[in-house]
Amino acid sequence: MADAKKPLGQGILKGLALTLKHFLARPIITVQYPEQTLVHSRRLRGCDLVWDPERCTACCTCAKSCPQGNIRIETRLRPDNTREAVVFEIDHGRTMFCGLCVESCPFDAIHMGKASERATYSRESLVLPKEKLTISPERQPSGYFRPQFEAELPPQTLLVYGGRASEGPAAPAAPAGPPAPAGATPPAAGAPKEKVGVK
């Protein structure tokens, strides 16, 4: 009855040998999240809004365009008759990230952010004051539809693209070469560095 086919059971033995090899000899390949992180896509729109105090003229257009009234601005007149924002707060707990403030800003001073770690222990700490809204290495603007930012953002590191996780202090020893940007979006050639323009 048994023809020339392979006897049943060989696959099971092979599988057992393979899993035992994995158990004994293979290192862990998953990203150990709080210690290691992957760099997201440059075009990711995270749950974040960033603000550029240099560009802002405190015109309050963003606050007026916000359908939820989430942006609170207090302004002051400078000696040279321009205005600056003394208080600039966005409630990240209430915003729906519709982006109307970003679209409406005539001076490109507010952008959708790339950061996605927004967990806190209290609701109050989700209301970000202006010191926490400014652009920093942790709070990058999203490169989506903003080629001037996309060119400067670090390339994406995903395991599927052959990149490796950026390693923190507790990460296992691995060659700390420059991350391979193999499938990540290439820098937009000739992207205008200056202001995109008022719509």
């Binding site: 009855m1 049943l8 059971g9």
Partner: peptide, 18 residues
């Protein structure tokens, strides 16, 4: 015994019969 008895079962279009 295990090998002989396992070989009594064979596959027809992915279904093990015996």
């Amino acid at each position: 015994f295990v090998v002989i008895w396992a070989n009594r079962f064979y596959r027809v279009k992915g279904v093990t019969v015996g």
